[in-house]
């Protein structure tokens, strides 16, 4: 399979996964593009693997976990390269402005505030439906650590859901 074939076939799924992982469609786009650029330069090796998509997913996971410096979304707000992308997004997002607010939205906001490793473990279990053993391999930790991440994540989500009033992290404008 050539790199172009791979992208044509797998890109939508990779973007969905990255979006769930990052809780941010813009960041997902950046992460996937960054990973695919690297994968492209090594495609001779990656394309020969038994499951290149799994490998690229692993790259996406690690990219998310090690996201830092200028890649951190807020620190360098946007690059000139993405000015065009801003425009392209505009019409797409306009259609979603009136999306229905429901419990799932509230849950997504809580998930988005989880520490990254907890969020990754949660996504790998509940979205990817992977067993703890595979999650542990992916996150390079022990199964017990995976269970701990998920337990803390669930506990955090539950306690926050039952907390009335504004979230403490939110901005209080003067």
């Amino acid at each position: 399979m050539t790199f172009d074939d791979f992208v044509a076939l797998r890109l939508p799924r990779l973007l969905r996964y990255a979006t769930v992982l990052t809780s941010d469609a813009h960041l997902a786009e950046d992460v996937v593009q960054e990973v695919l650029l690297r994968a492209q330069s090594r495609w001779r090796r990656i394309g020969g693997l038994e499951a290149p998509e799994s490998y690229v997913r692993k790259m996406i996971t690690n990219e998310f976990l090690s996201w830092r410096r200028r890649r951190a979304s807020g620190e360098v707000a946007t690059s000139p390269d993405s000015i065009r992308t801003l425009r392209e997004r505009a019409s797409r997002e306009h259609d979603d402005v009136h999306a229905r607010y429901d419990e799932r939205d509230a849950m997504l906001r809580r998930i988005a505030r989880l520490p990254r490793k907890q969020r990754a473990a949660l996504v790998l279990r509940y979205y990817e439906q992977l067993p703890d053993r595979e999650i542990a391999q992916l996150l390079r930790c022990r199964e017990g650590t995976v269970r701990s991440h998920i337990s803390r994540a669930l506990s955090g989500l539950r306690s926050e859901a039952s907390t009335p009033g504004p979230r403490p992290a939110l901005l209080k404008e003067t």
Binding site: P12, R16, T19, V20, T85
Partner: peptide, 15 residues
């Protein structure tokens, strides 16, 4: 919720 998040993913054309 995670499935809903996935549905809000970016357009592959941008990537």
């Amino acid at each position: 919720a995670l499935l809903r998040q996935a549905d809000s993913g970016p357009d592959p054309a941008a990537v």
